[in-house]
């Protein structure tokens, strides 16, 4: 596999997402699977980035197991979260809408 920033953790070879092990600021250029990506927004520790292209309607894998389905095409290095991934079981409840405009909170 091509190089990836050491702040991104691959949990299983079968995964198509990487997990941030540190918070990475907006505007930083990081290498994901050999591709340089300039982050449009801050990536908070514990959040996921696409390891490879994930087409809409296909499963997202983490820990080597499916964690839901992509709701749109996801590019390499893109943030994978509520806006482009949905559960195959029950819908996810978040306060994002209530907090519209506010930046993500540091965990």
């Amino acid at each position: 596999m091509t190089t990836t920033d050491t702040r991104l953790l691959l949990l299983s070879d079968a995964d198509n997402v990487l997990v941030a092990r540190a918070t990475i600021e907006a505007g930083e250029t990081i290498v994901v699977s050999g591709t340089p990506i300039t982050l449009p927004a801050r990536v908070i520790m514990g959040h996921k980035l696409a390891r490879r292209t994930i087409p809409a309607g296909t499963p997202v894998h983490k820990y080597g197991a499916p964690i839901g389905t992509a709701t749109e095409d996801i590019a390499v290095g893109e943030h994978v979260h509520l806006h482009n991934l949905k559960s195959n079981y029950t819908a996810t409840h978040s306060l994002d809408a209530a907090r519209a405009g506010a930046e993500g909170q540091e965990p």
Binding site: G46, K48, A65, H81, T90, H93
Partner: peptide, 14 residues
Amino acid sequence: ADGGLTTIEEKSLG
């Protein structure tokens, strides 16, 4: 979700 978990199955696996 703020902490980066997106779906129940992702939370479950953790």
